[in-house]
């Protein structure tokens, strides 16, 4: 192995990137660049510095640059992280970057997330109700208390960045495993008091490649950049498969406002004068 080089004190960072060009390469090949460290520099900033000043052919995916879109997931110094959310100052003088593990690499650091998205779709990630007529053309609102919201709101922060799948040891060996992202989102809907779709979703996840493929290594929750904690969601989902969802009955529809209610704006707003002819 080559000697690690680079020095944060001298303000220079060595970036070692696993590169892959589908037209030339059969395996990933490492390439090194040196980048001048700037205050507040993230790994994504360093990659942009390389792309703009040293090698325009370097491919990576990003969008928001502030940890919201989940596009720039990479394997940085042995852990899946968002490149835009990771300061180079916390990584040392040499940073090793590779595409997300347990995914296919399209080119350089661009992972193929289509499997993650298709698995997400496979677990029916939407509210399911028995009153389909009300669902299709709603007349009123579904009632939900703040306590009921707290049961699942943590899991709604999922970016679908697939870092959890890259960290999961089960996904490393079991290709059919649905993975922490999709399974966590199942519980997000199962725990929603407006939902009645546990039985339908159980048909998808009650299997060895589903919820029981999780052996509680906890790596997914460590890798999650938004504190979604998929490991917690999956264990609570297992419990729900045995004992039902955390809410006893589905949320009822309620009128948005009581009969005869007038919004404050409507009450205060002066009436327009009658049109003068």
């Amino acid at each position: 192995m080559a000697k690690l080089t680079g020095d944060t004190e001298s303000g220079v960072l060595t970036l070692r990137v696993a590169r892959y060009n589908p037209e030339q390469d059969e395996a990933a090949r490492p390439q090194e660049w040196k980048v001048k460290i700037l205050p507040g520099m993230t790994v994504l900033d360093a990659l942009f510095a390389i792309k703009e000043e040293q090698d325009g052919s370097l491919a990576f995916r990003c969008s928001c640059r502030m940890g919201v879109c989940g596009s720039c997931g990479m394997f940085i110094n042995g852990k899946p992280r968002l490149a835009c959310n990771t300061q180079v100052s916390e990584l040392g003088s040499v940073v090793e970057v590779a595409p997300l593990p347990n995914h296919d690499a399209i080119k350089d650091l661009v992972p193929d997330l289509s499997l993650t998205f298709s698995r997400h779709r496979a677990v029916l990630p939407y509210l399911m109700r028995r009153d389909t007529a009300e669902m299709e053309s709603p007349t009123r609102e579904y009632h939900q208390t703040p306590e009921e919201l707290a049961r699942y709101v943590q899991f709604t922060y999922c970016l679908k960045c697939s870092l959890c799948l890259a960290a999961c040891p089960t996904a490393a060996t079991k290709e059919q495993f649905l993975g922490p992202q999709a399974l966590g989102q199942v519980y997000r809907y199962v725990a929603d008091s407006r939902d009645e779709g546990l039985a339908e979703r159980a048909g998808v996840v009650d299997a060895s490649h589903g919820v029981f493929g999780c052996h509680l290594a906890g790596a997914c929750s460590e890798a999650c950049p938004k504190g979604v904690d998929p490991a917690l969601a999956i264990q609570l989902l297992k419990r729900s498969l045995f004992s039902g969802p955390p809410h006893r009955s589905a949320a009822q529809v309620v009128p948005a406002f009581p009969e005869g209610h007038q919004t404050p704006e409507a009450a205060v707003r002066p009436k327009a004068p009658p049109p003068s002819v």
Partner: peptide, 14 residues
């Protein structure tokens, strides 16, 4: 579709 590079870790992953 251009060939993809599998990054599946296999046994090393666990």
């Amino acid at each position: 579709v251009p060939p993809r590079l599998s990054m599946r870790l296999g046994l090393r992953g666990w």
